[in-house]
Design a protein around this nucleic acid. Structure first.
Lengths: 189, 189
DNA sequence: GCTTCCATGTAAGAGGTTACATGATTGG
DNA sequence: CCAATCATGTAACCTCTTACATGGAAGC
């Protein structure tokens, strides 16, 4: 019962279909919450039945029909209640880190490759998030936007995502270098 | 079926009971994997029945008896297989970030408090992880330890944890400041 | 012509959370 | 004296993942 709040928060940006929401969860929202599209369709149905969101049918000609959802007043109230309550501790899960933890027992070459691959993905994400931030703040500079912008929530979480991806990229690059050097040492024995 | 690998990786440090493992998952392992103690007991039983770990009973006088587990050769082989396979994308979940995403719709005061609280927790964690790193590398300096240390896996993941916590703390402090300034602006209208 | 995009789901099974049970010992 | 620590689980419930189903349109 916590995905609902992530969905409500994401829907504050405007109307979204389940499909669009799933895309949002793949990019910006991915900085702090992960969910598969099936979960989102199910959660939207549940939220609607509880009156926290409303959907309206949009008939399309060249595309399948869709339903656009927005947060209701009851949904806003629920978000406010959530905002005041205690948060569960944050939660991370990363198989690559599990592998690094076991680095002394598994094949180094494969691990180095995966770290480089991950570094490249993180690099691509930093660039993407940088562009998203520019888009969100528009013409004004960051300090000004943060002082007077009307909707800064998504901007703030993207800042966190950007910082996370940079940091993660740097770590991957560094660890790959460490493992490479150790391979050289072992090979030279 | 991925918790098993986190458990195997954690058990590489030596023998652990379910209870001790749960503590490890609260500190070092928490940098990349979260699991409740009940899960760990269940997973250890499963791993033992599959021959990937072995347990031995340790009778204690002043404390309840316990079972210490270590990884078997089959367990090591499973870890190696896992190390070579593709990793699932990393997974993050943070209710505080959900709240920040909805910052424009929820009470700012409560959010600022929670951000400060979180910053303090992150600060405490950076200090703890700093100490853990010193302990892991012993007398030698970091570069030397990373070149020639025998077991560097946990060190590398702790480095990531340290970096993450610092970064997270800085973000929390900054966002709290942004929200405070906006409150001042709104109050002054 | 093949793949990707749009768009919404269902169903089964695996995995995770919450609440509970037990009971001696050590530290403040 | 009260809380925390050590130590291991069970049971019920909720959530999440995996696999599948459908079908037209647009891009390469």
């Amino acid at each position: 019962m916590a995905l609902r709040h992530a969905v409500l928060a994401a829907l504050l940006d405007g109307e979204y279909s389940g499909y669009q929401l799933a895309k949002a969860f793949d990019v910006g929202v991915a900085n702090f919450w992960h969910a598969a599209s099936q979960q989102l369709y199910a959660e939207l149905a549940k939220l609607e039945s509880e009156g926290l969101v409303t959907g309206r049918q949009v008939v399309q000609k060249t595309r399948p029909d869709k339903r656009l959802f927005r947060v209701t007043d009851a949904g806003l109230a629920e978000l406010e209640r959530f905002g005041a309550a205690a948060s569960k501790p944050s939660f991370i899960r990363d198989e690559l880190l599990v592998k690094v933890h076991a680095a002394d027992s598994i094949d180094g070459g494969s691990l180095i490759e995966q770290l480089q691959e991950r570094a490249a993905v993180a690099e691509a994400k930093t660039e993407f998030l940088g562009g998203l931030l520019r888009q969100l703040r528009g013409e004004v500079d960051e300090a000004e936007f943060l002082r007077r912008g009307e909707r800064i929530g998504p901007y703030l979480t993207c800042l966190r995502g950007l910082s996370f991806e940079r940091d993660h990229r740097d770590w991957c690059v560094r660890i790959a270098a460490v493992l490479r050097e150790r391979q050289g040492i072992h090979a030279g024995r």
